[in-house]
Structure formats: structure tokens, C-alpha cells
Simulated assay, not measured.
Amino acid sequence: MHQKAAEAGAVFGEGCGWERANWYAPEGVAREYRYSFGRQNWFEHSAAEHRAIRENIGVIDTSSFGKMLVQGRDAARVLQRVSANNVDTDPDRIVYTQWLNPFGGIEADVTVTRLSEAKFLVLSGPATFNRDLAYLRRQIGDDEFCTVADVSGTMAMLAVMGPESRRLLQPLTDCDLSAEAFPFGRSAEIDLGFGFVRATHVTYVGELGWELLVPTEISHHIWDTLFDAGAPLGLRPVGYHAMNSLRLEKGFRSWGHDISSRDNPLEAGLGFAVKWDKPGGFIGRDALAAAKEAGTERRLVQFLLEDPEPILLHDEPIFRDGQRVGRVASAQYGHTLGGSVALGWVWADGPEERAWFEKGLYEIEIAGRRVPARASLRPMYDPKSERPKS
């Protein structure tokens, strides 16, 4: 996809060896970074990409995400043991899950799609893919029939996101993409253009949309098909800066930034993805159950600065009622929420109820100045997650 992104005006950045479009420069705008501690030269262009997905439609080239094919007679058993969520679903369903270590910490943050009875596709972030691949292979017993293959290079991936995404995609395929026929969490191979892609109704930006896994040999054709049909609709290419601002408004986590192997799902606000009573349990269940019984004294909290001007980066100190209680993990400007938005870890002196972490006077220190901030354990944007399911 590099050539297509470059032709569309991409200003590239690097992530784990991948050259990726961070933002797209309109015609006549220099394709360069002019660095600043304030609003940089790409700010307004990334804002336009952000708003395109919130209000209309955009396409993000997410080909750098890792893909592993897990298959064999015991593939379901291995993945069930490793995953905190229940991945033993019907075929053509996607499940968001964490893989835990024996101490209950998050070793990986992935999605698992069941392709058939004995075949699964696991998607992982580019920064963690090799780590996740090695971790999963270590969990396979000598007597288990299960193989794990890196198939990242066989497929490009395009995330078609926004409230108008169905309007774009439906005329291009014979598959019924209605909410009733293709609900959130479904994955299926569909025709598109002159080929077939795997479309999954899921989101990392908090809007209606489909992730398209595209065979490498037709990736340029699928890009052209989307943008030719999308031109009258105002379709825009969208970079990773905007993807980051979109996911932070929705409170979506990123392993290595917001969560790690020292953090458990209860502290990270991911308890909804833990299926405690699934048959066979999962690695780390006992430690996680003990942590639940002991209570939580640290949590990952979403913040929004009340002053719309300052820019948060990451690692800024967090104060509650004048006392330093934590740090910002990741941040970006939230163009829909109207201020810098962040995920940050907050520590209490001992186990506290959920409400404690949202109460109090919060401030985040930026270059020596403390700026008031609003705290929430629920996503500030679309807290009921209704938009992706529309």
C-alpha cells in the first residue's frame, strides 16, 4: 500500500520497521514535520482526517498489523487456555481478548477470528507482533496438534470507518452489510471489486466500519475501488495520528503504551473481556481472582483537559486534590471532545471503589503548569458504544 499512500499525499513515520502514513498533506502543503511542543504543522490536517471518520468516512491503511494463522486439531484448546475471553465461538466471529501471564498481567492484547472449526486468525499490533507470536508458540504442548504461522505479508489491511462506511461499501459487494445481516463482531469473506476480501465488522476508532483483510496481489485494486467509489462521498485517507486521537477519545487501550505485563485487566478497565467461568479456565485466572478479591488500588483512567489549548504528549504527572497520584500513559488532541485527551494510571493509598478514581479535583502538569482535567472510567465519547453497532 506504500505507493498508493504516497500518491495520496502521505507523510510517513516509522513503526517497528514499517513505514506508515502518519498524516496526509493536501496539495500544496509541504510533506514534512516542523516539530514543536505546541500544535505542530500537521495538527489541522490530522484534525480534518479525525473529523472525516467521526462525521463521514475515511480509510486507514493498517497493513502493519501482524496476522498469525493458528490451526490444527487442538488450535481451539490452545487459544482457549491462553485467552481470558471465550474464543470458542461459531466460525466467522471475532473476539477481543487479552493473553495473561501466571501473575494475571496482560502479556498480549489481540483479536481472535474463528475461520473454521480448526483454523483461527489472530491480529496483533505491529510493535508487539513478534512478542505475541513467540508467546503463543511457547504455550503449545508437545502433545498438541497446533501450528502458528506468520501470514502478515500475505494480506494488506484497510480499515473503512465512519458513519457513511456502509453507504460506500454496500454497492461494491453482493453481501448484505445491514446491521441485522452483518452485526458487530461478524467476520466473513465477501466479494469486493474483482476479488474477495475478509470483512470484519469491528472498530478501533469508535465508529461504524469494517476492517478489510486484502490479498496482497489485489491490494492496489481494492484501494482504487474504494477511492473511485468514495470520491463523490468525500472519502479521505486517514493516518496514524488521527487513528490515535480517535481511539483515545473512545478510551481504547494500546499495549506497550497504556497496558503491559505488569497490569491486570481489572486495573486496566478490561474486566468485560474476562470470562471467569468458561470451561477449562485460562492462564492467570487464579492470580486474577485473588486480585479481584483484594480490591483495586490503581486504575487506568481517561482524562480530558478543561482548557482546550494545551497539548498533552505522555508521561505528564497527574495530581488529585493536590497530591501526585500517577502519570499519563498516552495522549493526543481529541478534536471531537475539544481538548487534549489521555489515558493515565492513578494510584490510591489502598484498595478503593470505582467511584474514588473519578472523584476529586484532578490536574495534569504540563511544562510546570497544572491544568484542570476531567476524569472518567467510561469512554467520554459514545460511552454506550452505540455508534459502531448502528
Rank of each mutant, 00 (worst) to 15 (best):
H2S: 07
H2G: 05
A5N: 13
A5W: 05
A8V: 05
A8M: 15
G17V: 11
R20V: 15
R20Q: 09
N22T: 10
G28Y: 09
R31F: 06
R31N: 02
R34P: 01
R39E: 10
Q40R: 08
Q40G: 01
H45Q: 13
E55K: 05
N56I: 04
V59M: 11
T62H: 07
S63E: 06
S63C: 08
L69K: 10
A76S: 09
L79N: 01
S83W: 06
S83C: 15
Q98L: 08
W99P: 00
W99N: 04
W99M: 12
F103K: 14
F103R: 14
G105I: 01
I106C: 02
D109S: 11
V110K: 04
V110M: 07
T111M: 08
E117P: 00
G125H: 14
D132N: 15
L133Y: 15
Y135N: 10
Y135H: 10
R138P: 00
R138S: 15
I140N: 06
G141Q: 08
D143A: 12
D143E: 09
C146R: 02
A149G: 00
D150H: 06
S152R: 06
S152F: 09
A156M: 06
A156L: 04
M157S: 14
M157Q: 14
V160Y: 10
A179V: 14
S187Q: 02
S187P: 04
F194N: 11
R198T: 13
R198Q: 12
H201Y: 03
H201C: 09
H201E: 12
T203P: 13
T203Y: 07
V205L: 06
V205Q: 07
E207M: 08
E211G: 12
L213K: 02
P215A: 06
E217P: 01
W223T: 09
W223Y: 13
D224I: 05
F227G: 06
F227D: 08
F227Y: 11
D228M: 08
G230Y: 11
P232N: 07
L233C: 08
L235K: 10
P237H: 15
H241F: 14
N244R: 14
R247C: 10
K250S: 14
G251F: 12
G251R: 12
F252N: 12
R253M: 13
W255N: 04
G256Q: 01
S261L: 02
N264E: 02
E267Y: 03
G271R: 00
G271K: 02
K275P: 00
W276S: 02
D277V: 08
R285F: 04
D286V: 13
A287F: 07
K292E: 09
T296I: 15
L305V: 11
E309S: 01
P310M: 04
I311W: 02
H314T: 05
E316K: 05
I318L: 06
I318K: 06
R320Q: 14
D321V: 07
V328W: 02
V328Q: 07
A329V: 00
S330C: 10
Q332F: 09
S340G: 15
L343G: 14
V346G: 07
A348V: 01
D349I: 00
E358V: 04
G360I: 08
G360A: 04
Y362P: 03
G368I: 10
A373P: 02
A375Q: 03
A375M: 12
S376Y: 08
R378Q: 13
M380V: 09
S385L: 14
P388H: 09
